[in-house]
Every structure is written in C-alpha cells, then in structure tokens.
Amino acid sequence: MKNNIKVERAKLNITQSDLAHAIGVSKQTIHSIESGRYVPSSVIALKIARYFNTTVEQVFELEEGD
C-alpha cells in the first residue's frame, strides 16, 4: 500500500515526531508506515487523514497485488 504521508508532512512542515505525538503513536510507527513496511489499522489511517484534513483515500492507496 502506497501513501503520501511524507508529502502531506512536507506541506505542513512537520516532523515524524510531531505527527506521532498528534495522533498518539510512536515515532517508529510513523516511520514504518511512511516507508510502507507497516500497514496501519483503519483507526490510525483515519486519524492520520483527519490530522491532514483530508480523506483516507487521499493519503493511502492500494497497489497491484494488495
């Protein structure tokens, strides 16, 4: 699953730690999600989307084979 978290963070000029603190997860979790190694639960995906004031589909996208 692809994601645009890095792009969305860059728009707001915030760090992984800032995002992690805002949605109540660890910095390592944001790093793992951002690099595509960990697929978040629907709750975390919704929290991330809400933080960026957008929809889940705008942040996360299914890839071929998912």
């Binding site: 992690a20 109540g24 997860v25 390592q28 979790t29 960990y38 639960s41 709750v43 975390i44």
Partner: peptide, 11 residues
C-alpha cells in the same frame, strides 16, 4: 505497556 502502545507495538 509501552509509552505508545499502538497497533505496531501490539503486532
């Protein structure tokens, strides 16, 4: 529990 006991920590 961890400080941030999120889904990844549980996995």
């Amino acid at each position: 529990k961890e400080k941030y006991d999120d889904d990844r920590a549980k996995a």
